[in-house]
């Protein structure tokens, strides 16, 4: 069992095998193997407690269905189920997704990182530029004149739905 401590001092106890999904944690455990018990405490300083909770939920779900097995022998039904679960897991606001991406980046959890980035890119699909700007809290910085000049008008990019 190892202990993760978030920036707001909450402790999370996780099975080593589960936490091993983070390559950063796995390396730390490997480094400290055979040492005292206190060394099994890992500070995750840059993230608040809401995120480790989510990360651990993600770990547990994936621990039950490790990636390698998932690819080799998982039945179609189970794969569908995992997909559905992930869709629900990532169905959250952009701030949480950003935090998840940052946590996955610093803890080195490739599948979580990819999943969250994919979700961010999904959010950008099939929306108008204004909606995207609103969701991702981006100011468009275009001055009024630039907007007239630089943004290609509808004419410059004629969507022909009847052709689609």
């Amino acid at each position: 069992m190892i202990t993760l401590i978030s920036s707001d001092k909450r402790k999370f106890h996780v099975l080593e095998e589960v936490a091993n999904q983070s390559l950063t944690i796995r390396d730390v455990i490997e480094d400290r193997r055979g040492r005292r018990r206190a060394d099994r405490i890992i500070l995750v300083t840059n993230i608040n407690s809401k995120i480790p909770e989510k990360v651990i939920v993600y770990w547990l779900r994936h621990f039950l269905m490790p990636e390698e097995i998932a690819h080799a022998s998982m039945s179609h039904k189970k794969a569908e189920k995992l997909k559905k679960w992930e869709a629900k897991f990532f169905d959250t606001d952009i701030d949480t997704l950003n935090d998840l991406i940052l946590a996955a980046d610093s803890l080195d959890i490739p599948s979580l990182f990819d999943g969250a980035c994919e979700k961010v890119s999904d959010i950008l699909k099939n929306r108008s530029a204004e909606e995207v700007g609103e969701i991702s809290k981006i100011e468009n910085e275009f001055t009024h004149e630039e907007e007239e000049e630089e943004i290609p008008s509808e004419n410059a990019w004629v969507w022909r739905n009847e052709f689609a």
Binding site: I94, C117, S121, L124, S136, N140, F142
Partner: peptide, 29 residues
């Protein structure tokens, strides 16, 4: 993308399919 380092934002935006790039190009400078 506010809240993300630029190199990670690049990874998020670069995976958006090309048919949505026109909208992306109108979001901001």
């Amino acid at each position: 993308i506010p809240g993300l380092p630029d190199e990670i934002s690049l990874l998020c935006l670069a995976r958006v399919p090309r048919c949505h790039h026109f909208t992306i190009s109108c979001v901001s400078k």
